[in-house]
């Protein structure tokens, strides 16, 4: 692999809550010790259940949240604690598309205002015709430039969100569940648009999703997270998973073909509270392949034929 465009190492983020009159403050680890390298041109999918820290990871990579520990390198430069002007110029190369197209656009901004905002935020003039070009690229009629978000559908708004993210011609785009709040038919359109843009503009994506089927279709690598940690990295999205959690996720996705439909065996038990993580492997309480060792020791990532897995008893290929 050539030099990665984004390299996270040991990235950790803790949140503390409470701290009331009679309650001590508690702290939870939303992301712990994540190592991840994204090569230029890659589409890396991050999957996991809600609350596993994937959105927090996206915001850490975007420098919207400060990491408690670890480093972020972008194009070889350490950007973990970048501030001021340097952070602003990083923002030009690093953009984000948000999950909810309803709250990610200011209701008082026209489409033109939204798309021009990245330039205004950095105090730079808007290149003439840029808004119209971007509308063409995301497949919206130019007449939408003076419309307000409330006059558009969810899919159209998400296209505006994508146009805004591309306004500065970034190299790297974080997509935080960009299709999760859209209808299935619209999801397909947005994914097709993202694929086109990826090809045309030589982009790199970090794609956050909980839809493993979509990630397997769209991404070139898959990162599976569970309770803040990366449990498996799959270089080949269509390979058979090694981690019992990845397999459980895959088995729980619905298959449209009734002939191929198998009985879904749901995972037993609840996700442990992130405030009180169990000793050892966080997946141990729910794991069908659990051993004694899993409850006391934290498995370290080990290389597999398709990537790496953090498990003492991985599924053999």
């Amino acid at each position: 692999m050539s030099e990665p465009i984004l390299a996270l190492s040991g990235l950790t983020r803790r949140f503390s809550t409470g701290g009331g009159f009679l309650r001590p403050a508690r702290s939870m680890t939303a992301v712990r010790g994540v190592d991840l390298q994204v090569a230029r041109g890659d589409i890396v999918g991050v999957v996991g259940e809600s609350g596993c820290g994937k959105s927090t990871l996206a915001r850490l990579a975007m420098r919207l949240l400060e990491p408690s520990d670890g480093t972020i390198r972008f194009e070889g430069q350490d950007v973990t604690h970048l501030g001021g002007r340097a952070l602003k110029s990083l923002r030009k190369k690093l953009q984000m598309v948000f999950q909810d197209p309803y709250s990610s656009l200011d209701p008082r901004y026209t489409v033109r205002d939204c798309i021009e905002e990245p330039f205004r935020a950095l105090g730079e003039p808007v290149p003439p015709g840029r808004v119209e070009d971007l509308l063409d690229q995301v497949g919206l009629p130019r007449s939408f430039a003076e419309s307000y978000p409330h006059q558009m559908s969810g899919g159209q708004r998400q296209r505006v969100g994508i146009a805004r993210a591309l306004a500065y011609a970034p190299d790297f785009v974080v997509l935080d569940e960009p299709t999760a709040s859209l209808d299935v038919s619209i999801q397909a359109q947005i994914i097709a648009l993202l694929q086109d843009l990826h090809r045309q503009r030589d982009l790199t994506y970090l794609f956050i999703s909980h839809d493993l089927g979509l990630v397997r279709y769209f991404c070139s690598r898959i990162v599976v997270m569970y309770l803040g940690s990366v449990v498996e990295v799959m270089e080949d999205p269509h390979a058979a998973p090694r981690h019992p959690y990845t397999r459980a996720l895959m088995e729980s996705s619905f298959v449209p073909d009734p002939e191929a439909r198998a009985t879904i065996v749901p995972l037993e038990g609840e996700i442990p509270s992130p405030f009180a993580l169990p000793q050892g492997c966080p997946f141990a309480p729910r794991c069908p392949r659990v051993q004694d060792r899993c409850r006391s020791e934290l498995p370290q990532p080990t290389a597999t034929t398709i990537g790496r897995v953090s498990c003492f008893n991985p599924i053999e290929a």
Binding site: F98, S104, L122
Partner: peptide, 10 residues
């Protein structure tokens, strides 16, 4: 989210 988005744009 649009406030977060604005922050993300610098």
């Amino acid at each position: 989210t649009f406030v977060e988005a604005a922050r993300g744009m610098g």
